[in-house]
């Protein structure tokens, strides 16, 4: 598929967003490795982190190809600054505890399933292929996070309190997930990314159903601001995450590992 320059740029941007979401969330989950509540969960969280970082690697590799400046997925992961990262603010939030981790994951998984399902019918073959491979993994992630959310929400009083607290803390990062900016508008207009309107309603619908079952309350919908992470505006947490992630690669530029 031959693309105009402005469409190409938009596609590059879009792929960065997809890749960065998964890289940063995968990184956060990998921080659990060795510290999970039970050894079985060490393995489960590790698996999800592996899937996400694998997906990130594929999206960033494709992004680098679309950009055509000879960069690799590693260049994109290790040699961009925080304002050049396009991931959602939601995924860069710290693990805090298992409740925050599961709520963050559940919010993301529901969204990710919507986007990936949508992209499987994308006319750019590589992207459609990546989406359908990722979707299989994402469906399992959703099963895992949803089942845990039910258990934490409807477990003990303490677990309900902790989970509700996590919901209240993370809720404010969910609005921007569904903002559609010029980049996406252009891609939708050109038929590269299928129409995404109604996503927030679908997302809310799933969240609502699960919350009812999990005895959790949806916070007041007072989200009238947009965070703007898709344009590189982040919380302070991302900088620290990147400092750790990139230290080795940046300390020895040009070295092979």
């Amino acid at each position: 598929m031959k693309l105009d320059n402005n469409v190409k740029n938009a596609l590059f941007e879009f792929l960065l967003r997809m890749g960065d979401d998964r890289l940063i969330l995968g990184h956060r989950l990998s921080e659990w490795c060795g510290h999970a509540p039970v050894i079985e969960e060490d393995i489960a969280l590790g698996n999800i982190a592996l899937d996400l970082i694998g997906q990130a690697s594929a999206f960033l590799n494709f992004a680098a190809g679309v950009e055509g400046k000879g960069r690799t997925e590693d260049d994109l992961a290790y040699f961009r600054n925080e304002t050049e990262f396009k991931n959602l603010q939601l995924v860069e939030q710290p693990n805090v505890d298992f409740a925050h981790t599961i709520v963050r994951q559940y919010f993301f998984d529901v969204y990710s399933n919507l986007v990936l399902t949508n992209l499987t019918s994308c006319p750019v073959n590589e992207l459609a292929g990546m989406a359908s491979k990722s979707l299989k993994e994402s469906k399992y992630h959703l099963r895992h996070s949803k089942q845990w959310l039910l258990r934490l929400g409807d477990g003990t009083d303490l677990s309900n309190e902790k989970t509700q607290n996590a919901v209240n803390n993370l809720w404010r990062f969910t609005k921007e997930i569904f903002d559609i900016d010029e980049t996406e508008k252009l891609l939708i207009e050109k038929g590269i990314v299928p129409e995404m309107s109604g996503f927030r309603e679908k997302w809310l619908d799933s969240i609502n159903k699960t919350f009812m079952e999990a005895k959790l309350k949806l916070p007041e919908d007072n989200l009238d601001f947009s965070a703007g992470s898709r344009n590189g505006f982040h919380t302070e947490h991302l900088g620290h995450l990147l400092a750790e992630m990139q230290i080795l690669a940046r300390s020895y530029p040009g070295a092979k590992w």
Binding site: V38, E40, I43, A44, N47, R143, H144, Q147, R151
Partner: peptide
């Protein structure tokens, strides 16, 4: 080890 059948399946898979 798992608290219930669904989690047992998930753990077994992983």
């Amino acid at each position: 080890h798992a608290p219930d059948p669904e989690m047992a399946l998930q753990n077994a898979r992983d």
